[in-house]
């Protein structure tokens, strides 16, 4: 059985009442490669975050950046755009 409401429980017009709820959808499973940051080369500029179409790269307490692998689709834009070339893409294991 579906977890979605029956017709009587649907609000008229069926709006989505929870903003930003796409976060429930973990797109990380689409990924075949993951970005790895080399902290020795990283200058903590944030260009990787800025160009991430998933908005899934965030700064850690130490100031470095990392991708939230729940969402990262492995597109590689962060690696491509990193001005110090500190990001490499690593093949996901089966």
């Amino acid at each position: 059985m579906s977890s979605l409401p029956g017709w009587k429980a649907l609000p008229p017009g069926c709006p989505v009442q929870t903003p930003l709820s796409a976060a429930n959808n973990h797109t990380g499973s689409w990924r075949s490669e993951r970005p790895i940051w080399n902290h020795e080369q990283c200058v903590q500029c944030g260009v990787c975050d800025m160009f991430c179409p998933e908005a899934c790269i965030k700064q850690t307490a130490e100031g470095f950046y990392e991708a939230n692998l729940d969402y990262c689709k492995g597109c590689g834009i962060c690696k491509q755009e990193c001005p110090t070339q500190c990001i490499s893409m690593k093949q996901e294991e089966e």
């Binding site: 979605l4 409401p5 029956g6 649907l10 989505v16």
Partner: peptide, 14 residues
């Protein structure tokens, strides 16, 4: 809120 969302097969009928 989001109005006019995509009606996936699991909700369109309802």
């Amino acid at each position: 809120w989001t109005f006019g969302a995509v009606g996936i097969p699991d909700i369109y009928l309802e």
